[in-house]
Write a protein that binds this DNA or RNA. Structure first.
Lengths: 213, 213
DNA sequence: TCGGGCACTGTATAAAAAAACAGTTATCGA
DNA sequence: TCGATAACTGTTTTTTTATACAGTGCCCGA
Protein backbone atom coordinates (compact mmCIF):
# COMPACT_ATOMS: atom_id res chain seq x y z
CA UNK A 1 0.00 0.00 0.00
CA UNK A 2 1.32 3.44 -0.92
CA UNK A 3 1.76 6.14 1.68
CA UNK A 4 -1.41 8.12 2.38
CA UNK A 5 -1.55 11.91 2.79
CA UNK A 6 -2.83 13.11 6.19
CA UNK A 7 -6.14 14.11 4.60
CA UNK A 8 -6.53 10.71 2.93
CA UNK A 9 -5.81 9.01 6.25
CA UNK A 10 -8.61 11.09 7.79
CA UNK A 11 -11.00 9.91 5.11
CA UNK A 12 -9.96 6.29 5.60
CA UNK A 13 -10.40 6.67 9.33
CA UNK A 14 -13.88 8.09 8.81
CA UNK A 15 -14.81 5.15 6.59
CA UNK A 16 -13.71 2.73 9.30
CA UNK A 17 -15.56 4.60 12.03
CA UNK A 18 -18.69 4.82 9.91
CA UNK A 19 -18.56 1.13 9.20
CA UNK A 20 -18.11 0.31 12.88
CA UNK A 21 -21.03 2.52 13.86
CA UNK A 22 -23.52 1.80 11.09
CA UNK A 23 -22.44 -1.57 9.79
CA UNK A 24 -21.80 -0.26 6.28
CA UNK A 25 -19.31 2.11 4.66
CA UNK A 26 -20.44 5.70 3.99
CA UNK A 27 -21.80 7.12 0.73
CA UNK A 28 -20.09 10.03 -1.02
CA UNK A 29 -22.83 12.27 0.36
CA UNK A 30 -22.15 11.12 3.91
CA UNK A 31 -18.45 11.87 3.52
CA UNK A 32 -19.38 15.30 2.18
CA UNK A 33 -21.53 16.00 5.25
CA UNK A 34 -18.96 14.69 7.71
CA UNK A 35 -16.15 16.83 6.29
CA UNK A 36 -18.24 19.85 5.34
CA UNK A 37 -17.48 19.59 1.62
CA UNK A 38 -19.73 21.38 -0.83
CA UNK A 39 -19.31 18.95 -3.66
CA UNK A 40 -19.61 15.18 -3.94
CA UNK A 41 -16.58 15.22 -6.21
CA UNK A 42 -14.36 16.05 -3.23
CA UNK A 43 -15.36 12.74 -1.69
CA UNK A 44 -15.14 10.93 -5.01
CA UNK A 45 -11.61 12.20 -5.61
CA UNK A 46 -10.47 11.03 -2.19
CA UNK A 47 -11.95 7.60 -2.73
CA UNK A 48 -10.25 7.34 -6.11
CA UNK A 49 -6.94 8.28 -4.52
CA UNK A 50 -7.40 5.72 -1.74
CA UNK A 51 -8.26 3.05 -4.30
CA UNK A 52 -5.26 3.97 -6.45
CA UNK A 53 -2.98 3.65 -3.43
CA UNK A 54 -4.39 0.26 -2.56
CA UNK A 55 -6.06 1.23 0.70
CA UNK A 56 -9.58 0.48 -0.48
CA UNK A 57 -11.38 -1.30 -3.26
CA UNK A 58 -14.26 0.40 -5.10
CA UNK A 59 -17.13 -1.64 -6.52
CA UNK A 60 -18.38 0.22 -9.58
CA UNK A 61 -22.08 0.94 -9.57
CA UNK A 62 -22.75 -0.40 -6.12
CA UNK A 63 -23.93 1.91 -3.38
CA UNK A 64 -21.49 2.06 -0.47
CA UNK A 65 -19.22 -0.06 -2.62
CA UNK A 66 -16.15 0.65 -0.52
CA UNK A 67 -14.15 -2.27 0.75
CA UNK A 68 -11.34 -1.40 3.11
CA UNK A 69 -8.47 -3.74 2.43
CA UNK A 70 -7.12 -5.73 5.35
CA UNK A 71 -3.70 -4.17 5.70
CA UNK A 72 -5.10 -0.66 5.38
CA UNK A 73 -7.50 -1.41 8.22
CA UNK A 74 -4.65 -2.76 10.31
CA UNK A 75 -2.44 0.22 9.74
CA UNK A 76 -5.22 2.68 10.43
CA UNK A 77 -6.22 0.99 13.63
CA UNK A 78 -3.45 0.08 15.98
CA UNK A 79 -5.75 -2.90 16.21
CA UNK A 80 -7.11 -4.44 19.38
CA UNK A 81 -4.38 -5.56 21.77
CA UNK A 82 -6.23 -8.82 22.22
CA UNK A 83 -5.24 -11.80 20.14
CA UNK A 84 -1.98 -10.21 19.10
CA UNK A 85 1.21 -11.74 20.37
CA UNK A 86 4.58 -9.97 20.24
CA UNK A 87 7.64 -11.43 18.58
CA UNK A 88 10.78 -10.64 20.57
CA UNK A 89 13.80 -9.80 18.50
CA UNK A 90 17.28 -9.16 19.81
CA UNK A 91 17.11 -8.83 23.55
CA UNK A 92 19.23 -5.94 24.71
CA UNK A 93 21.46 -6.48 27.72
CA UNK A 94 19.77 -5.94 31.05
CA UNK A 95 16.48 -5.05 29.43
CA UNK A 96 13.22 -6.73 30.38
CA UNK A 97 12.05 -9.26 27.85
CA UNK A 98 8.87 -7.47 26.88
CA UNK A 99 10.39 -3.98 26.53
CA UNK A 100 8.85 -2.21 23.54
CA UNK A 101 12.29 -1.83 22.03
CA UNK A 102 12.65 -5.57 21.76
CA UNK A 103 9.36 -6.19 19.99
CA UNK A 104 9.99 -6.91 16.36
CA UNK A 105 6.46 -7.63 15.21
CA UNK A 106 3.01 -8.59 16.33
CA UNK A 107 1.28 -11.70 15.10
CA UNK A 108 -2.42 -12.28 15.25
CA UNK A 109 -3.15 -15.72 16.56
CA UNK A 110 -5.35 -17.58 18.95
CA UNK A 111 -3.39 -17.92 22.17
CA UNK A 112 -5.72 -20.74 23.12
CA UNK A 113 -3.92 -22.81 20.54
CA UNK A 114 -1.25 -23.40 23.15
CA UNK A 115 -1.55 -24.56 26.76
CA UNK A 116 -0.93 -22.60 28.82
CA UNK A 117 -1.42 -19.43 26.76
CA UNK A 118 1.94 -17.93 25.74
CA UNK A 119 2.99 -14.35 26.43
CA UNK A 120 5.39 -13.87 23.56
CA UNK A 121 7.23 -15.50 20.69
CA UNK A 122 10.98 -15.87 20.45
CA UNK A 123 12.93 -16.68 17.31
CA UNK A 124 15.16 -19.69 17.82
CA UNK A 125 18.85 -19.37 16.97
CA UNK A 126 21.19 -22.28 16.47
CA UNK A 127 20.87 -26.04 16.44
CA UNK A 128 21.30 -26.78 20.12
CA UNK A 129 17.74 -28.06 20.57
CA UNK A 130 17.59 -29.97 17.31
CA UNK A 131 16.64 -33.31 18.83
CA UNK A 132 13.67 -31.73 20.60
CA UNK A 133 12.41 -30.68 17.18
CA UNK A 134 13.32 -27.04 17.79
CA UNK A 135 15.16 -25.69 14.78
CA UNK A 136 16.78 -22.35 13.93
CA UNK A 137 14.22 -19.83 12.69
CA UNK A 138 11.33 -21.44 14.55
CA UNK A 139 9.17 -19.22 16.69
CA UNK A 140 9.05 -20.52 20.23
CA UNK A 141 5.86 -19.68 22.13
CA UNK A 142 6.85 -18.73 25.66
CA UNK A 143 4.84 -18.42 28.84
CA UNK A 144 6.42 -15.96 31.27
CA UNK A 145 7.22 -17.63 34.53
CA UNK A 146 10.21 -17.38 36.89
CA UNK A 147 9.98 -20.97 38.05
CA UNK A 148 10.62 -24.15 36.13
CA UNK A 149 10.21 -27.85 36.76
CA UNK A 150 12.89 -30.36 35.91
CA UNK A 151 12.61 -31.52 32.33
CA UNK A 152 10.84 -28.44 31.04
CA UNK A 153 12.30 -26.40 28.23
CA UNK A 154 12.95 -22.88 29.42
CA UNK A 155 14.09 -19.53 28.13
CA UNK A 156 16.90 -18.50 30.47
CA UNK A 157 19.12 -15.51 30.68
CA UNK A 158 22.75 -15.82 31.71
CA UNK A 159 24.29 -12.39 31.84
CA UNK A 160 23.75 -10.96 28.37
CA UNK A 161 22.91 -14.25 26.73
CA UNK A 162 19.41 -15.54 26.20
CA UNK A 163 19.26 -19.27 25.70
CA UNK A 164 16.69 -22.01 25.19
CA UNK A 165 17.49 -25.26 27.00
CA UNK A 166 16.02 -28.10 28.98
CA UNK A 167 15.98 -27.28 32.69
CA UNK A 168 17.28 -29.53 35.43
CA UNK A 169 17.95 -28.56 39.04
CA UNK A 170 19.30 -30.45 42.03
CA UNK A 171 19.64 -28.24 45.08
CA UNK A 172 21.50 -25.08 44.08
CA UNK A 173 22.98 -26.74 41.02
CA UNK A 174 21.22 -26.10 37.73
CA UNK A 175 22.01 -27.77 34.43
CA UNK A 176 20.78 -26.34 31.14
CA UNK A 177 20.75 -29.28 28.76
CA UNK A 178 20.90 -28.96 25.00
CA UNK A 179 19.07 -31.50 22.87
CA UNK A 180 21.96 -32.16 20.54
CA UNK A 181 25.09 -34.21 21.32
CA UNK A 182 27.26 -31.63 19.52
CA UNK A 183 26.56 -29.11 22.27
CA UNK A 184 27.71 -29.19 25.88
CA UNK A 185 25.43 -28.77 28.90
CA UNK A 186 25.71 -25.55 30.88
CA UNK A 187 26.22 -25.86 34.64
CA UNK A 188 25.31 -23.07 37.04
CA UNK A 189 25.71 -22.90 40.78
CA UNK A 190 22.92 -20.58 41.90
CA UNK A 191 24.99 -19.53 44.92
CA UNK A 192 27.74 -18.18 42.72
CA UNK A 193 26.04 -17.17 39.46
CA UNK A 194 22.78 -15.49 38.68
CA UNK A 195 20.28 -17.26 36.44
CA UNK A 196 17.04 -15.66 35.33
CA UNK A 197 14.28 -17.88 34.03
CA UNK A 198 12.40 -15.73 31.53
CA UNK A 199 9.74 -18.27 30.80
CA UNK A 200 8.78 -21.74 29.73
CA UNK A 201 8.33 -23.04 26.20
CA UNK A 202 4.69 -23.91 25.64
CA UNK A 203 4.66 -24.29 21.88
CA UNK A 204 6.28 -23.72 18.56
CA UNK A 205 5.50 -22.20 15.20
CA UNK A 206 7.52 -22.86 12.10
CA UNK A 207 7.11 -20.96 8.86
CA UNK A 208 8.67 -22.66 5.92
CA UNK A 209 8.27 -25.54 3.56
CA UNK A 210 11.30 -27.34 4.99
CA UNK A 211 12.69 -27.59 1.49
CA UNK A 212 16.22 -26.69 2.55
CA UNK A 213 16.41 -28.64 5.77
CA UNK B 1 -32.72 -11.73 20.61
CA UNK B 2 -35.73 -13.85 19.68
CA UNK B 3 -35.31 -17.23 18.11
CA UNK B 4 -34.89 -17.10 14.33
CA UNK B 5 -36.59 -19.45 11.87
CA UNK B 6 -34.20 -21.56 9.73
CA UNK B 7 -34.95 -19.36 6.74
CA UNK B 8 -34.26 -16.18 8.67
CA UNK B 9 -30.99 -17.64 9.90
CA UNK B 10 -30.06 -18.28 6.27
CA UNK B 11 -30.75 -14.66 5.41
CA UNK B 12 -28.71 -13.44 8.37
CA UNK B 13 -25.88 -15.71 7.37
CA UNK B 14 -25.97 -14.35 3.84
CA UNK B 15 -25.82 -10.79 5.15
CA UNK B 16 -22.73 -11.67 7.16
CA UNK B 17 -21.03 -13.43 4.30
CA UNK B 18 -21.81 -10.57 1.94
CA UNK B 19 -20.39 -8.09 4.39
CA UNK B 20 -17.23 -10.14 4.82
CA UNK B 21 -16.75 -10.43 1.09
CA UNK B 22 -17.72 -6.96 -0.11
CA UNK B 23 -17.25 -4.82 2.95
CA UNK B 24 -20.89 -3.75 3.04
CA UNK B 25 -24.24 -5.45 3.72
CA UNK B 26 -26.36 -6.48 0.72
CA UNK B 27 -29.25 -4.59 -0.83
CA UNK B 28 -32.74 -6.08 -1.10
CA UNK B 29 -32.02 -6.78 -4.73
CA UNK B 30 -28.84 -8.67 -3.91
CA UNK B 31 -30.70 -10.83 -1.41
CA UNK B 32 -33.33 -11.49 -4.08
CA UNK B 33 -30.67 -12.63 -6.54
CA UNK B 34 -28.85 -14.78 -4.00
CA UNK B 35 -32.00 -16.63 -2.93
CA UNK B 36 -33.76 -16.68 -6.28
CA UNK B 37 -36.75 -14.62 -5.13
CA UNK B 38 -38.93 -12.94 -7.71
CA UNK B 39 -39.90 -10.02 -5.61
CA UNK B 40 -37.96 -7.50 -3.52
CA UNK B 41 -40.68 -7.73 -0.93
CA UNK B 42 -39.54 -11.23 0.00
CA UNK B 43 -36.21 -9.74 1.05
CA UNK B 44 -37.88 -6.76 2.69
CA UNK B 45 -40.14 -9.01 4.76
CA UNK B 46 -37.21 -11.07 5.97
CA UNK B 47 -35.29 -7.97 6.95
CA UNK B 48 -38.30 -6.64 8.84
CA UNK B 49 -38.62 -9.94 10.67
CA UNK B 50 -34.93 -9.95 11.57
CA UNK B 51 -35.19 -6.37 12.81
CA UNK B 52 -38.30 -7.17 14.86
CA UNK B 53 -36.51 -10.08 16.49
CA UNK B 54 -33.53 -7.93 17.35
CA UNK B 55 -31.01 -9.61 15.07
CA UNK B 56 -30.41 -6.54 12.92
CA UNK B 57 -31.05 -2.83 12.91
CA UNK B 58 -32.51 -1.13 9.82
CA UNK B 59 -31.58 2.46 8.98
CA UNK B 60 -34.60 3.94 7.21
CA UNK B 61 -33.85 5.45 3.83
CA UNK B 62 -30.20 4.48 3.75
CA UNK B 63 -28.96 2.08 1.11
CA UNK B 64 -27.53 -1.10 2.61
CA UNK B 65 -28.77 0.24 5.93
CA UNK B 66 -28.48 -3.10 7.68
CA UNK B 67 -26.54 -3.26 10.91
CA UNK B 68 -26.04 -6.74 12.28
CA UNK B 69 -26.18 -6.54 16.04
CA UNK B 70 -23.21 -7.96 17.90
CA UNK B 71 -24.79 -10.96 19.58
CA UNK B 72 -26.61 -11.96 16.41
CA UNK B 73 -23.30 -11.94 14.57
CA UNK B 74 -21.72 -14.13 17.21
CA UNK B 75 -24.52 -16.65 17.26
CA UNK B 76 -24.82 -16.87 13.50
CA UNK B 77 -21.15 -17.16 12.76
CA UNK B 78 -19.42 -20.09 14.17
CA UNK B 79 -17.24 -17.12 13.28
CA UNK B 80 -16.44 -16.24 9.70
CA UNK B 81 -14.67 -18.86 7.62
CA UNK B 82 -11.92 -16.31 7.23
CA UNK B 83 -9.03 -16.48 9.66
CA UNK B 84 -10.19 -19.90 10.78
CA UNK B 85 -8.25 -22.85 9.62
CA UNK B 86 -9.58 -26.40 9.77
CA UNK B 87 -7.78 -29.21 11.53
CA UNK B 88 -8.09 -32.44 9.59
CA UNK B 89 -8.58 -35.51 11.69
CA UNK B 90 -8.73 -39.05 10.45
CA UNK B 91 -8.95 -38.93 6.69
CA UNK B 92 -11.52 -41.41 5.48
CA UNK B 93 -10.57 -43.59 2.55
CA UNK B 94 -11.27 -42.04 -0.82
CA UNK B 95 -12.63 -38.91 0.68
CA UNK B 96 -11.40 -35.46 -0.29
CA UNK B 97 -9.11 -33.97 2.29
CA UNK B 98 -11.32 -31.03 3.14
CA UNK B 99 -14.58 -32.98 3.41
CA UNK B 100 -16.64 -31.65 6.29
CA UNK B 101 -16.59 -35.09 7.87
CA UNK B 102 -12.83 -34.97 8.23
CA UNK B 103 -12.71 -31.63 9.98
CA UNK B 104 -12.01 -32.10 13.64
CA UNK B 105 -11.79 -28.51 14.76
CA UNK B 106 -11.24 -24.97 13.59
CA UNK B 107 -8.44 -22.83 14.89
CA UNK B 108 -8.34 -19.09 14.68
CA UNK B 109 -5.01 -17.90 13.44
CA UNK B 110 -3.41 -15.52 11.04
CA UNK B 111 -2.73 -17.47 7.87
CA UNK B 112 -0.22 -14.81 6.93
CA UNK B 113 2.01 -16.24 9.60
CA UNK B 114 3.02 -18.85 7.07
CA UNK B 115 4.19 -18.45 3.49
CA UNK B 116 2.40 -19.37 1.40
CA UNK B 117 -0.84 -19.28 3.39
CA UNK B 118 -1.91 -22.79 4.44
CA UNK B 119 -5.29 -24.33 3.70
CA UNK B 120 -5.52 -26.74 6.59
CA UNK B 121 -3.75 -28.30 9.54
CA UNK B 122 -2.89 -31.96 9.87
CA UNK B 123 -1.90 -33.73 13.07
CA UNK B 124 1.38 -35.55 12.68
CA UNK B 125 1.53 -39.24 13.62
CA UNK B 126 4.71 -41.17 14.25
CA UNK B 127 8.37 -40.31 14.36
CA UNK B 128 9.27 -40.75 10.69
CA UNK B 129 10.07 -37.03 10.21
CA UNK B 130 11.84 -36.57 13.54
CA UNK B 131 15.07 -35.21 12.06
CA UNK B 132 13.18 -32.52 10.19
CA UNK B 133 11.89 -31.31 13.53
CA UNK B 134 8.43 -32.72 12.86
CA UNK B 135 7.26 -34.65 15.89
CA UNK B 136 4.14 -36.70 16.68
CA UNK B 137 1.26 -34.48 17.82
CA UNK B 138 2.55 -31.46 15.93
CA UNK B 139 0.11 -29.65 13.68
CA UNK B 140 1.46 -29.43 10.17
CA UNK B 141 0.26 -26.39 8.20
CA UNK B 142 -0.45 -27.56 4.65
CA UNK B 143 -0.95 -25.65 1.43
CA UNK B 144 -3.12 -27.59 -1.00
CA UNK B 145 -1.28 -28.21 -4.23
CA UNK B 146 -1.08 -31.22 -6.51
CA UNK B 147 2.48 -30.55 -7.58
CA UNK B 148 5.67 -30.73 -5.60
CA UNK B 149 9.31 -29.87 -6.14
CA UNK B 150 12.13 -32.17 -5.18
CA UNK B 151 13.14 -31.68 -1.56
CA UNK B 152 9.84 -30.32 -0.39
CA UNK B 153 7.94 -31.99 2.40
CA UNK B 154 4.57 -33.12 1.13
CA UNK B 155 1.37 -34.68 2.35
CA UNK B 156 0.78 -37.62 0.04
CA UNK B 157 -1.90 -40.21 -0.20
CA UNK B 158 -1.10 -43.79 -1.14
CA UNK B 159 -4.30 -45.75 -1.33
CA UNK B 160 -5.88 -45.35 2.09
CA UNK B 161 -2.77 -44.07 3.80
CA UNK B 162 -1.94 -40.43 4.28
CA UNK B 163 1.72 -39.79 4.89
CA UNK B 164 4.09 -36.88 5.42
CA UNK B 165 7.44 -37.27 3.69
CA UNK B 166 10.12 -35.45 1.77
CA UNK B 167 9.39 -35.59 -1.96
CA UNK B 168 11.89 -36.62 -4.61
CA UNK B 169 11.08 -37.46 -8.21
CA UNK B 170 13.22 -38.58 -11.14
CA UNK B 171 11.14 -39.29 -14.23
CA UNK B 172 8.24 -41.49 -13.26
CA UNK B 173 10.01 -42.72 -10.15
CA UNK B 174 9.06 -41.03 -6.91
CA UNK B 175 10.73 -41.54 -3.57
CA UNK B 176 9.06 -40.47 -0.34
CA UNK B 177 11.90 -40.00 2.11
CA UNK B 178 11.48 -40.12 5.87
CA UNK B 179 13.71 -37.93 8.03
CA UNK B 180 14.67 -40.68 10.43
CA UNK B 181 17.12 -43.51 9.78
CA UNK B 182 14.80 -45.96 11.57
CA UNK B 183 12.30 -45.68 8.73
CA UNK B 184 12.62 -46.85 5.15
CA UNK B 185 12.00 -44.71 2.07
CA UNK B 186 8.89 -45.44 0.02
CA UNK B 187 9.38 -45.97 -3.73
CA UNK B 188 6.56 -45.44 -6.20
CA UNK B 189 6.55 -45.92 -9.94
CA UNK B 190 3.92 -43.48 -11.18
CA UNK B 191 3.24 -45.71 -14.18
CA UNK B 192 2.21 -48.59 -11.96
CA UNK B 193 0.91 -46.99 -8.79
CA UNK B 194 -1.19 -43.95 -8.12
CA UNK B 195 0.16 -41.22 -5.89
CA UNK B 196 -1.90 -38.22 -4.88
CA UNK B 197 -0.10 -35.17 -3.58
CA UNK B 198 -2.53 -33.55 -1.19
CA UNK B 199 -0.37 -30.54 -0.44
CA UNK B 200 2.89 -29.13 0.69
CA UNK B 201 4.03 -28.46 4.25
CA UNK B 202 4.39 -24.73 4.76
CA UNK B 203 4.68 -24.59 8.51
CA UNK B 204 4.23 -26.21 11.85
CA UNK B 205 2.54 -25.58 15.16
CA UNK B 206 3.40 -27.45 18.31
CA UNK B 207 1.38 -27.24 21.48
CA UNK B 208 3.17 -28.46 24.49
CA UNK B 209 5.89 -27.64 26.96
CA UNK B 210 8.15 -30.41 25.67
CA UNK B 211 8.38 -31.64 29.21
CA UNK B 212 8.06 -35.27 28.20
CA UNK B 213 10.28 -35.28 25.12
C1' DT C 1 7.24 26.68 -16.75
C1' DC C 2 5.15 22.69 -17.25
C1' DG C 3 2.84 18.70 -15.82
C1' DG C 4 1.09 16.03 -12.08
C1' DG C 5 -0.80 15.17 -7.68
C1' DC C 6 -3.64 17.25 -4.18
C1' DA C 7 -7.81 19.29 -2.52
C1' DC C 8 -11.44 21.16 -3.62
C1' DT C 9 -16.42 23.82 -6.05
C1' DG C 10 -20.62 23.29 -8.84
C1' DT C 11 -23.90 20.98 -11.88
C1' DA C 12 -26.16 17.20 -13.99
C1' DT C 13 -27.92 12.59 -14.81
C1' DA C 14 -28.58 7.67 -15.04
C1' DA C 15 -28.71 3.83 -12.26
C1' DA C 16 -29.36 1.66 -7.84
C1' DA C 17 -32.03 1.05 -3.92
C1' DA C 18 -35.67 1.60 -0.36
C1' DA C 19 -40.15 1.12 0.52
C1' DA C 20 -45.08 1.30 -0.08
C1' DC C 21 -49.34 -1.12 -1.76
C1' DA C 22 -51.99 -5.16 -3.06
C1' DG C 23 -52.14 -9.88 -3.16
C1' DT C 24 -51.44 -15.54 -2.33
C1' DT C 25 -50.61 -19.86 0.24
C1' DA C 26 -49.62 -22.38 4.26
C1' DT C 27 -48.99 -23.40 9.22
C1' DC C 28 -50.18 -23.13 13.96
C1' DG C 29 -52.15 -22.16 18.30
C1' DA C 30 -56.45 -20.25 20.75
C1' DT D 1 -62.39 -20.92 12.29
C1' DC D 2 -60.14 -16.96 13.38
C1' DG D 3 -56.09 -14.30 13.52
C1' DA D 4 -51.16 -14.09 13.65
C1' DT D 5 -46.84 -15.31 11.55
C1' DA D 6 -44.18 -17.02 7.83
C1' DA D 7 -42.83 -16.96 3.20
C1' DC D 8 -43.47 -15.49 -0.66
C1' DT D 9 -45.25 -12.80 -6.02
C1' DG D 10 -45.82 -8.43 -8.74
C1' DT D 11 -45.82 -3.49 -9.52
C1' DT D 12 -44.85 1.32 -8.74
C1' DT D 13 -42.77 5.44 -6.86
C1' DT D 14 -39.58 8.24 -4.67
C1' DT D 15 -35.18 8.81 -2.88
C1' DT D 16 -30.50 7.81 -2.68
C1' DT D 17 -26.29 7.21 -4.80
C1' DA D 18 -22.56 6.88 -8.05
C1' DT D 19 -20.34 9.11 -11.38
C1' DA D 20 -19.31 12.03 -15.42
C1' DC D 21 -17.98 16.73 -16.89
C1' DA D 22 -16.06 21.33 -16.32
C1' DG D 23 -13.48 24.13 -13.47
C1' DT D 24 -10.05 26.64 -9.60
C1' DG D 25 -5.88 27.24 -6.72
C1' DC D 26 -1.72 25.34 -4.66
C1' DC D 27 2.57 23.13 -4.30
C1' DC D 28 6.44 20.43 -5.91
C1' DG D 29 9.93 18.39 -8.62
C1' DA D 30 12.05 18.13 -13.39
Amino acid sequence: MDELTPRQAEILDFILRHRAEHGAPPTRAEIVTAFGFRSPTAAEDHLRALARKGAIDLRAGASRGIRVLADAANEAMQAGPQDRIPLIGRVAAGMPMLATESIEAHYKLDRQLFHPAPDFLLRVQGWSMRDAGILPGDLLAVKRTPIAENGQIVVARLGEEVTVKRFERHGSLVRLLPANPDFAPIRIDLERQELVIEGRAVGLIRDGGFSLA
